[in-house]
Structures are given as structure tokens and as C-alpha cells.
């Protein structure tokens, strides 16, 4: 009995001493502020900041002298200001953003001409052909973006075959933007009262060709550009683009679009021409 007590305690003591020295030898001196910053971050490890994970981002924050380029899309400006105050640095502010799907090629608007069969991967379908509808820039509907979303902010609409973004959940981490092989998803500023106007099309083909495949394609007709009083709309490669920094949300462009390619989100319904806009907000 006594022997076993002694021998066990001595083994324990010896191990403790060895462990102590090993811990000393391999001790890593780390800025304690990294842990503190890490604690303040949301801990989603989404990679939206451009770093591999929250801890890497915390390291970068502590190291950096200027925080204006560093932003955590999940925590937003509030978290960044807190961190900056704690570290005594100046925080940069960034407009909150949200993901926007820039394609309205639903099964109805862009009818299927061929039938894709194979792995449920947009990346593969993109390499194989221009897709079921024939539009080379349109949504393939296989949900690579939904699979990439870590915040339950997306789902595939079974009726339209298009991804839908749940705004309340979207933190603009950009995972879906990277996942989409056709760059259909864009991060845009949330805007006043969450109101946004954008061109829901990515097709750069000539108007006639684009229309053949999809009834709501942007045909690059310049009508919206002429209508815009703020130079917010540019047309390049037969495709209009609305700059969200310049757009004043005056809503003048949407009614002139002959193909209903310009979408308005979260606006109150228009008084006149209710039929047309109702259709648009419905699809949104």
C-alpha cells in the first residue's frame, strides 16, 4: 500500500517537473491583446474579412497601425469601433453590405432548352456548357452559393430555380460571391431603409441574342443610362451597371427598362403603372 502510494506520487511529481520544463522551453510569447480582440470578434470564421479565420484577423488587427482597411463584415462597424477603442486606434467605417443575386433567369423567364444531368455543381456545369437556358452568364441553379453560405442566408427557390438571399441573415461575408462560377452575386451597400436598385442581369451578349434566351435580360439599350440624372448607370459590353455609390434611389430608371431587368428592393409600391412594378417586386 505504502509502496504504491509513494511510487505513484513520485511518478506524478516527476511528470509534473518534466512538463514544467517543457512548457517553459516551448513557451510562445504572444501579444495578449490578440486573445482579447479574438474574444470580441463574432467567431464565425467565415473568412469574409479576407483572412483564414477570426484569430488570423485578430493578429492582423493587433499588428496593423491603420484599421481602415480591416473590416469584419459579420460584426460590422460596431464591433470594429469597439476593438479600435480598446486598442486605441482609429477605426475605418464601411457601409454595411448585403449580397444581391444579379440574375432573374428563372425557369419561366429563361426556359430550358437542354437538360443538364450530372453532379450538382455549378462549377462543373459551367465548364460543360452555357447551361440549360443557353445564357452563358445566367444562373445555373445548382446551388454552389447556397452550399457555401454559413449563415443560413440563402436558399434555392424551387419555383424560379434561383437562389434567394434572406437579408436579415446575410452578413456579406462574400462566400457566395466566390462560390459562383459566373460572378452573378454581388455585394452591394444595404442603402437607406435597405432600399436598393440594381440591374438583375450579367449577360454581355448583344441584345437580340440575350433576349432569345431570356425574356428579362439586359439588352444594353441605353434607355436607363439616359434617364439617370446622377451618372450612376454605365453600359459596357451590352450590359448596364448601376453604381450603388452614386445611385440616389430616385427610381426613374426602372420604369424605362424595356425588359424589366432593373430591380427595386424594399420600396413602397408605385402609384401609377402598378401592374408592371408589382410584377417586379413579386419576382424580387
Amino acid at each position: 500500500m505504502l509502496v504504491s502510494i509513494i511510487s505513484l506520487s513520485s511518478i506524478g511529481a516527476a511528470s509534473a517537473i518534466i512538463l514544467y520544463f517543457i512548457a517553459q522551453k516551448f513557451k510562445v510569447i504572444e501579444d495578449p491583446r490578440i486573445d482579447e480582440v479574438n474574444e470580441m470578434l463574432p467567431g464565425a470564421n467565415c473568412g469574409g474579412c479576407g483572412f483564414a479565420g477570426c484569430r488570423n484577423f485578430a493578429e492582423a488587427i493587433v499588428k496593423a497601425t491603420d484599421l481602415s482597411d480591416l473590416n469584419c463584415p459579420v460584426g460590422g462597424n460596431a464591433v470594429m469601433t469597439d476593438i479600435a477603442n480598446m486598442l486605441g486606434k482609429a477605426a475605418g467605417t464601411k457601409e454595411p453590405q448585403v449580397a444581391v443575386v444579379r440574375c432573374n433567369g428563372s425557369c419561366e423567364n429563361a426556359p430550358k432548352k437542354v437538360q443538364y444531368e450530372g453532379a450538382a455543381s455549378c462549377a462543373f456545369a459551367h465548364a460543360l456548357s452555357s447551361g440549360d437556358s443557353g445564357c452563358p452568364d445566367g444562373c445555373l441553379g445548382l446551388g454552389d452559393c447556397v452550399a457555401s453560405c454559413k449563415f443560413d442566408a440563402m436558399y434555392m427557390d424551387p419555383v424560379t430555380c434561383l437562389p434567394v438571399i434572406i437579408e436579415e441573415n446575410c452578413v456579406a461575408c462574400g462566400a457566395c460571391v466566390k462560390a459562383c462560377p459566373r460572378n452573378i452575386i454581388e455585394l452591394r451597400n444595404v442603402g437607406k431603409k435597405s432600399r436598393r436598385i440594381y440591374v438583375s442581369c450579367m449577360n454581355t451578349e448583344k441584345g437580340g441574342v440575350a433576349r432569345k434566351n431570356c425574356s428579362v435580360a439586359c439588352i444594353g439599350c441605353f434607355k436607363c443610362e439616359k434617364e439617370c440624372a446622377f451618372d450612376a448607370i454605365t453600359i459596357k459590353n451590352n450590359l448596364a451597371y448601376i453604381d450603388y455609390e452614386k445611385c440616389k434611389l430616385c427610381r426613374k430608371c426602372a420604369p424605362v427598362c424595356p425588359t424589366n431587368a432593373i430591380h427595386e428592393i424594399n420600396f413602397p409600391p408605385r402609384k401609377e403603372k402598378t401592374e408592371k412594378t408589382a410584377k417586379i417586386t413579386e419576382t424580387v
Binding site: K112, V114, Y116, G118, L128, S129, D132
Partner: peptide, 8 residues
């Protein structure tokens, strides 16, 4: 008929 598209 609608043609099927798939990888080899």
C-alpha cells in the same frame, strides 16, 4: 426532344 447535357 430536349437534349441531355452531361459530362463524359
Amino acid at each position: 426532344d430536349t437534349l441531355t447535357i452531361s459530362g463524359s
